[in-house]
Amino acid sequence: MSKQITFSIDGVEVKGKEGQTILQAADEAGIYIPRLCYMEGLVPHGSCRVCTVIVNGKPQTACTQPIAEGMTVENDTPELKEHRRNIIDMLFIEGNHFCMFCEKSGNCELQALAYRLGILSPKFPYFFPKKDIDATHPDIFLDLNRCILCGRCVEASKDIDRKGVFDFVGRGINKKIAVNAEANLKDTNLAIADKAADVCPVGSINKKHTAFATPIGKRLYDVKPIGSEIEERKK
């Protein structure tokens, strides 16, 4: 049995197990730390920075930082909320996110997080970048207009599907998801049952012919804000 570790989040004592990250221990304790790129079952890499918390006075990503005895973690503070809002705001304006006709609306983690953080309108000017659409695959529709470069599809395809269909290319503002083929998505061995087809937090990787099947009111975040499912674990 792994060793129990006691630390605190926003002054509340939390007991976790040795080897857990701050985010894992917080989840078990029913404390929600906002996150985007992190997904249970995939190797965390701390790229989106939304889960940044203050650990003993220093910023760390909660999804990668292991817990340690006696550490103090700040999570739900006005300053961190503001940082998170800015990150989300920047993700919105760096892509082309039109929630009003996006099939992921209501089930989208980016949209849900924006609502949870109280973002009602964009703060920065839109970039309106030109992004690619790859509709060639018979079952999957890839729309890079909505990609937030979380890397979940890259991780899932590499580590779980063992295919390596997706990867990053380019740097900085030109960084984007590319497919492992000479031409298009249809030329890869991506299958609809692959984990990679199921992990996108936004409307970038979509299963074709299935859109809007869930009515408004029954979608994932229609009734309760994102993170509620974690907070409900609190004893």
Binding site: M100, F101, A135, F141, H209
Partner: peptide, 14 residues
């Protein structure tokens, strides 16, 4: 043009 057909009933009503 270029958008997937299943998006259109939700898109064009705008």
């Amino acid at each position: 043009q270029g958008r997937p057909y299943w998006e259109i009933p939700v898109l064009v009503q705008r």
